[in-house]
């Protein structure tokens, strides 16, 4: 049975080491707004911040162009860094870029690679915890979304989505729907019928 829990709410009377929990006196508590399945022992965070993993695609804004590095604002607790040598393009402060996480260094700076400038288009800010649902299993949700709306979409794991060309407003509406209803049943079908109506 799925239940919604708040931080500090008890999940289990025994100790269960899963992400997003703490264990006190042998009992397991949630640390986030989450949906918890008592039978399957699965905790899905409903809110949460982005923890960078190598290989994550991100979208950010060039904040500063220093001597041999670019500082990137990621709208996250960490800042991004691109070594000029890792870039084929030159950027100026304010440029919106897509890049890939190489690693997180000891100072919690996210080292980025393969940067690419994103020109024009619309940026959409979503909760990082909703990104997996927006992408869908095997990126299926986002593939169908772009196919139906004729948009080009880049999804940053840090919660920034870039949309260009095609039906930008319809795409925005669909993403907002996924974001708000991420934890509900039948979401894929509802998103598809929204897209059908909008087409």
């Amino acid at each position: 049975m799925q239940r919604i829990v708040i931080p500090g709410e008890k999940l289990e009377d025994k100790s269960l080491r899963i992400e997003g929990t703490i264990i006190e006196n042998g009992k397991t508590y949630s640390t986030l707004m989450s949906s918890y399945d008592d039978e399957k022992k699965i905790l899905i965070p409903l809110e949460g911040l982005w923890y960078p993993i190598s290989g994550d695609t991100i979208i950010g804004r060039i904040q500063e162009d220093k001597f041999n590095v670019y500082i990137v604002d990621l709208q996250a607790p960490y800042r991004g860094l691109i070594f000029s040598k890792d870039s084929n393009e030159e950027f100026v402060a304010g440029d919106i870029i897509e890049a890939t996480v190489k690693e997180m260094d000891k100072t919690k700076t996210v080292i980025l690679g393969r940067p690419r400038r994103l020109t024009g288009g619309k940026l959409l800010y979503v909760k990082p915890s909703k990104i997996p649902r927006i992408l869908g299993r095997g990126n299926n949700m986002i593939k169908q979304l772009t196919a139906k709306t004729g948009t080009r979409v880049t999804v940053g794991m840090n919660g920034i989505i870039w949309i260009k060309d095609g039906k930008v407003d319809l795409t925005t509406e669909a993403i907002n729907m996924i974001q708000e209803e991420a934890h509900t049943n039948g979401l894929t079908n509802r998103v598809m019928s929204l897209l059908e109506m909008g087409v």
Partner: peptide, 13 residues
């Protein structure tokens, strides 16, 4: 980073 939209996009609209 407060802009949800790029200048080019607003200009085009």
């Amino acid at each position: 980073m407060k802009n949800t939209t790029s200048y080019e996009y607003i200009k085009e609209l």
